[in-house]
Amino acid sequence: MTDPVFNVLFLCTGNSARSIIAEAILNRVGQGRFRAFSAGSQPKGRVHPRTLALLQHSHHDIGGLRSKGWEEFSGPNAPRLDFVFTVCDNAASEVCPIWPGQPMTAHWGVPDPAAVEGKESEIGLAFAETYRLLFNRISIFTSLPLRSLDRISLGQRLREIGQTKREPASP
């Protein structure tokens, strides 16, 4: 018997940096167990060029990445979602659509690297830090024993992951 693949949606307002980065990370780290998507409440219509450069540099497949609205995931033909994570504070405070499948939700807020201004090195550091935070949280998420946790315990663990700021402890 094959284990089901969990569908995960990462939400942000613009869907140009944080949610796109999370989608790419989970599709690689969770390959075969998770299928990641991303969307925005007010999508920019394009993926931030630094997002694409960072992901390419980290050897992620960027072929199918695009900025899109969350309505793609709320209609009758949308994939059944198992998890929905907001990665920006604005999206977390918005009224979200009703998601098919009654997914587990949590807020994993990360500062917006696309909003950083200053020297090229400062902007690059902001994107790298976003990648690091999301990679750490997604790594913790993919290591959870999802089948053995009840819904309440799982919800608590998902919220705790959103507070993770440092490197995960080594086993």
Rank of each mutant, 00 (worst) to 15 (best):
73 F>S: 14
148 S>G: 01
74 S>T: 12
11 L>Q: 06
155 G>R: 04
14 G>V: 09
40 G>E: 05
81 L>P: 01
131 Y>M: 03
26 L>V: 02
24 A>F: 03
161 I>N: 02
31 Q>R: 14
104 M>E: 12
57 H>R: 15
110 V>I: 14
124 G>P: 00
39 A>G: 11
34 F>M: 02
5 V>F: 13
155 G>W: 07
42 Q>T: 15
59 H>R: 15
24 A>L: 10
56 Q>L: 14
55 L>C: 03
71 E>G: 03
99 W>E: 10
100 P>S: 03
89 D>L: 12
77 N>K: 15
92 A>M: 09
124 G>F: 05
107 H>L: 05
145 P>D: 15
151 R>E: 14
31 Q>Y: 08
96 C>R: 15
96 C>D: 02
153 S>F: 04
94 E>D: 14
121 S>P: 01
40 G>D: 02
153 S>T: 07
57 H>L: 10
1 M>T: 15
162 G>V: 11
114 A>D: 13
14 G>S: 11
158 L>Q: 05
81 L>G: 11
128 A>N: 03
126 A>H: 01
38 S>N: 10
46 R>F: 13
105 T>Q: 15
33 R>V: 01
80 R>A: 13
53 A>Q: 08
156 Q>M: 05
100 P>K: 07
27 N>I: 02
61 D>H: 06
148 S>R: 13
65 L>N: 04
21 I>Q: 05
7 N>K: 02
142 T>K: 06
34 F>W: 07
141 F>I: 13
109 G>A: 14
130 T>V: 07
151 R>F: 01
15 N>Q: 08
86 T>K: 14
44 K>N: 11
29 V>Y: 01
26 L>W: 05
63 G>F: 07
22 A>I: 07
107 H>F: 03
79 P>R: 02
36 A>H: 04
127 F>N: 02
6 F>G: 07
114 A>E: 08
94 E>C: 03
21 I>T: 12
49 P>Q: 05
20 I>G: 00
59 H>L: 15
124 G>W: 00
136 N>Q: 09
113 P>V: 09
49 P>I: 11
88 C>Q: 04
1 M>I: 14
12 C>F: 06
155 G>L: 08
150 D>Y: 09
53 A>R: 09
126 A>F: 02
1 M>L: 07
12 C>M: 02
55 L>D: 01
71 E>F: 01
162 G>E: 05
133 L>T: 03
157 R>N: 02
24 A>M: 01
167 E>I: 11
122 E>R: 13
107 H>C: 04
163 Q>K: 10
3 D>N: 12
119 K>T: 06
146 L>Q: 00
161 I>T: 05
51 T>Q: 00
75 G>M: 13
51 T>W: 00
67 S>L: 07
